[in-house]
């Protein structure tokens, strides 16, 4: 695949003796939406953190546009500008208003004009229905609103790829939808995304490709999400998907 935007080759990540990702390779084409699923501790969040160079890596390489993504290198902040990331915990800056949260990096890091960025931010906020909250502080927003602002904040940097790390995991169920709707409209508009989620129906709806991970490895990969969720080919994926269906078992006391 020569048109790959992001290339992960033989990635290995370990914390001391404990290996979290072993020999993982993955290519992401421009405009592709990849959903990564798997049990807790399988390394999926760590994978996203490696792609944004928040973690050091112990082997292999990650290339974005052919440039290495590596923690503690001189140009890493330039590379990171091309990668947008949204975290599970609300990570807005609490001392800045919604508007300031969004414009801070484009103005200070990319040196773009403040008015231009504010106009763009306003347009994006309008789209997600939060324009009237632009002068509020994060503490005044609900969890779902904060996550939507976090998405807009990442988008305003014009990233080439977005990494979403369980962005609805900490939300009340009724707020999950408003966030997922925003992500879905991004996907429709052609954004390249790497998404880690536990929302299986959302995964099915949005994914161009589903990647199932376990123990730091890709166990199964499918370009047919519908088919994967209906009939996974590996036993392990089948077991994992089973856990999302609640069937009361025998309780013995």
């Amino acid at each position: 695949m020569d048109d790959a935007l992001l290339k992960i080759e033989h990635l290995r990540k370990a914390y001391g003796e404990h290996t979290v990702i072993r020999d993982l390779s993955l290519s992401v084409r421009k405009g592709e939406v990849i959903v990564i699923i798997g049990p807790s501790g399988c390394g999926k969040s760590t994978l996203l953190r490696c792609v944004n160079a928040l973690e050091s890596i112990q082997g292999g390489q990650i290339l974005l546009d052919g440039e290495p993504v590596l923690k503690n290198t001189k140009d890493i902040s330039l590379v990171r500008q091309k990668i947008g990331m949204v975290f599970q915990s609300y990570d807005l800056f609490p001392h800045k208003t919604v508007m300031e949260n969004i414009t801070l990096a484009p103005v200070k890091v990319q040196k773009r004009s403040k008015t231009e960025v504010q106009e763009e931010a306003a347009a994006l906020l309008e789209k997600i229905g939060l324009l009237d909250r632009r002068n509020d502080y994060p503490r005044q927003l609900s969890g779902g609103q904060k996550q939507r602002v976090a998405i807009v904040r990442a988008l305003c940097m014009h990233p080439e790829i977005m990494l979403l790390d369980e962005i609805t995991a900490a939300l009340d169920p009724e707020m999950v939808r408003e966030v997922l709707d925003v992500v879905l409209s991004l996907a429709r508009s052609g954004s390249t995304m790497l998404i880690v989620t536990h929302e299986m129906s959302f995964a099915k709806a949005i994914a161009d490709r589903v990647v199932f991970m376990e123990n730091g490895l890709i166990v199964e990969e499918s370009y047919e999400p519908e088919e994967f969720f209906a009939q996974p080919s590996t036993e392990r994926a089948k077991q994992f998907l089973q856990t999302f269906v609640y069937e009361p078992g025998e309780i013995t006391d």
Binding site: N52, L54, S77, L78, R80, Q81, I83, G84, M85, F87, S89, D91, L92, F93, L104, A105, K108, V109, Q110, A150, R153, A154, M157
Partner: peptide
Amino acid sequence: IQEESAESLGMN
């Protein structure tokens, strides 16, 4: 996470 989110926005 504050530092990480600042850095993931491209700040040094």
